[in-house]
Design a protein around this nucleic acid. Structure first.
Lengths: 164, 164
DNA sequence: CGATTAAAGGACTAAGAAGTCTTTTGATAT
DNA sequence: ATATCAAAAGACTTCTTAGTCCTTTAATCG
């Protein structure tokens, strides 16, 4: 992935959260159940997201984590910026400083639209979108598991993953 | 950046090399002169690129590093793959395994073209392109430095960098 | 030959990211 | 009040990445 594992966990954690509830608090223990998200580590990451104003947390009975604002108003970009800083996608491909729009290197002009495309995706994709996507995904997996074990089909899927 | 510093150094190092000569060996000492590339560390990275068949090296007098094949045949993607592995840009945004074309999550379909665009850029941009870009860039910088020091202009450039 | 040159290789140290464990804090229900 | 619950906080360990330094190897020039 193009992010640190910290950011990846954050994205996945928020997707899990949004897939369960966008309003009601969810316990971290419930959130990681059935996933391979490391509970203790995710707790640290969520702490940072609370400080960043993306998550809300409550202690004690009835507590847990919930989104600090509607999931449709939290872009994946917000998560990335909160955890990796504003400049994560900045800079030119050559890693040169002194590259800018006013004094671009030729590559700069080629790379900029690529970076822009990535940014747009991250800015327009919200935590709600991830929640919906994850719910749908889990539905598909459940459905597949319910079907009589078709190993040929599963093998084909694995091969497709490897190629991806 | 979306790469490790190792990969970034490699890209910059190869750009420096290609900007000097695509055929004649260049000494590492010459290569890093005037840059902030860490000589010893870059030496290690270049060793890996030699083993990967991207660079050729020669010891002793008249030695140094040179491209193992024409710069126009070395894609930035080759560098990334050599140093970070084939799977660097794989996987879905959610970091889920079990995501593939045959069983995609809805996000998968949204993210795929973005990733594809990035891949295409990396696959189509060659070390020669970087060399040309860097040469041009250095020419522009030299030209600017030759002009009477115009601090307002330089400040504007800095601001543009910050925004980028 | 042997002196010199420059990369290769190995042994490190430093810093950061990732992951775990224990204690503390604050909220809630009885 | 106090027992309980669940996140916050702090102190760790471990692992990887980054970076440095010193010795060895191999090539070339005189």
């Amino acid at each position: 992935m193009i992010f640190t594992t910290t950011t990846e966990y954050a994205i996945r954690g928020l997707a899990e959260l949004a897939s369960r509830s966008e309003t009601e608090p969810v316990l971290l223990a419930d959130l990681v159940a059935g996933t391979d998200l490391p509970r203790e580590f995710l707790a640290k990451v969520f702490q940072r997201l609370v400080k960043a104003g993306i998550l809300h947390s409550a202690k004690g009975r009835g507590g847990g984590f919930s989104l600090a604002r509607p999931g449709s108003e939290i872009a994946v970009m917000d998560i990335v910026v909160a955890l990796e800083g504003q400049q994560h996608f900045g800079g030119c491909v050559l890693g040169l400083d002194k590259c800018s729009d006013t004094m671009p290197c030729p590559q700069h002009d080629h790379y900029k639209p690529v970076r822009q495309r990535l940014r747009e995706y991250l800015a327009s994709t919200t935590v709600s979108d991830l929640g919906v996507a994850l719910r749908e995904k889990k539905r598909l997996i459940a459905k597949q598991n319910a079907e009589p074990a078709d190993d040929a089909d599963r093998t084909q899927t694995r091969a497709a993953i490897a190629k991806e």
